[in-house]
Write a protein that binds this DNA or RNA. Sequence first.
DNA 1: AATATTTCTTGATTCATGTCAAGATATTGG
DNA 2: CCAATATCTTGACATGAATCAAGAAATATT
Lengths: 215, 215
Amino acid sequence: MSIAELGSIHHAKNINLVFLIMLDNFFNKLSKAITLTEADKAIFRQHVSVKRLRKHQYLLQEGEVCKSVAFVYKGMLRSYLVDKKNNEHIIQFAPEDWFISDLNSFITEDISNLNIEAVEDSELILISKAAHVYLETAVPGFYKFNYMQYRGAYMSLQKRLTDMFMLSIEERYTKLLSIYPDITQRVPQHMIASYLGSTPETLSRVRKKIFVKKD
Amino acid sequence: MSIAELGSIHHAKNINLVFLIMLDNFFNKLSKAITLTEADKAIFRQHVSVKRLRKHQYLLQEGEVCKSVAFVYKGMLRSYLVDKKNNEHIIQFAPEDWFISDLNSFITEDISNLNIEAVEDSELILISKAAHVYLETAVPGFYKFNYMQYRGAYMSLQKRLTDMFMLSIEERYTKLLSIYPDITQRVPQHMIASYLGSTPETLSRVRKKIFVKKD
DNA sequence: AATATTTCTTGATTCATGTCAAGATATTGG
DNA sequence: CCAATATCTTGACATGAATCAAGAAATATT
């Protein structure tokens, strides 16, 4: 649903207000890294759209091309892969203020093997490929933002791979608990297990062990 | 050794020539993604240095801050971590035409937990932190190059994590063989095992199994 | 060429974690 | 509020890969 469409339906005023509030969050996120002028914000307003997803609905299913980058205003999404044995492997969680997409598919326009699904009812701001390309030239700060975003994402992923190599499941779990207590509480444990590269049973046993320790 | 220093020692002409040849490789690498003017190249010549490393020498040892990004002109480096049990875990190989550093330490200037070591006698072009910052503004194309470099590195790492989740050691090994036959031949097998998140013994058995299949 | 060092292979054993199954608990929807 | 569904726990067992150890092969060093 683009802003143009929003303007044409009932209660346009309220819905526009919601749209503007959502965008404010988005601008705040960008403003932590770059400076945005009012003119910049106006350009964004014309080039992004919003989308609502109920729990279990998909933003992207494997086999499709990833057509947009999503900024999560409300709710939470997850991206995951399904292997030959039908096991899910979670790549990323994206709660409020995070971005999510299949960058590879988005850039190359190849078919994605990733699923991106709402873990909760969610509200998103979407930036299409065309908009993304346009915005990077129209708003130079956005180019800079993405530069830092990619660099940061690379460094985080490096850390995650390091943890996979260096830490036991127990250590990885307690680390996740301390860094993202929020996510670990909002998401079923079997998804945490999947994110950590383990199984629900094993994580359950790890938790039992941790809680015995603390008593 | 900076170009200025190079100019002041014996056989300056020859050494300068080597320096220029090394830089040409570096410029070719950049030119695959961006356009470099002669003026740009001149700026680079003034802000990068060269370094030779004999096999087993370090570019970076854990506990130090990563002070430069290295472009490998000749030879090969590896970056790796050492865990509590003194096992090495290889993060990256960097043969000719690749870059290597601990990006995290380089950016944040925090102490690195990574070791970067020459696997073969190597010749490098080094870009210091100050030079890197300067070059990104003095040569806008370099900023753009790094944008793409980080984005690409992120996508590659995503694939590697995916492979760790989805593929067996055997599959990961054959995939590595097909994508980087070069690296797998130049490096001892126990390092390949480490890169794949396995042990020398297990990789040896995997290879045996693969070769039996092919007969 | 000879010796030392590194690398690779193979067997025996151990161990962590996955798998399967069943029941308990919690959550959601009519 | 009850039924249906999803989630979590626990036990028994299987299995893949790590570990330990020793010898073979290859490579480097003098």
